[in-house]
Amino acid sequence: MSNQEVIEKINAFLVEEFEVDPSSIQPNNPLKETIDLDSLDYVDLVVVIENNFGVKLTGEDFKHIESFNDFYNYIIERVAVTK
C-alpha cells in the first residue's frame, strides 16, 4: 500500500465512520480538535485502524500526534514496520 493510499483510506474512514467534515481534513489541522472524538470514539478508532492496517495503537505513541499529518505519518511508519 502506497503512502497516498494509506492517507486516502484514513480520510475515507474518518468521513464515513466518524462523520468528519471532508473540508476540515487538512494535513496541518489539529487532529483531536478537528475530529472532536470522545473516549468511546477512540475505542472505535483503535478497532478501525487495526482492521484496516493491521496496526496496533499504543497510548504512548498516540500522545505525540498533534496534526493530521502526524497521524498519517504515524500510520505509514507502523504499516511499513508490520510489512
Partner: peptide
C-alpha cells in the same frame, strides 16, 4: 486522554 482505552485493549 486515550491511555485507558489503549490500556484496556
Amino acid at each position: 486522554d486515550l491511555s485507558h482505552i489503549i490500556g484496556i485493549k
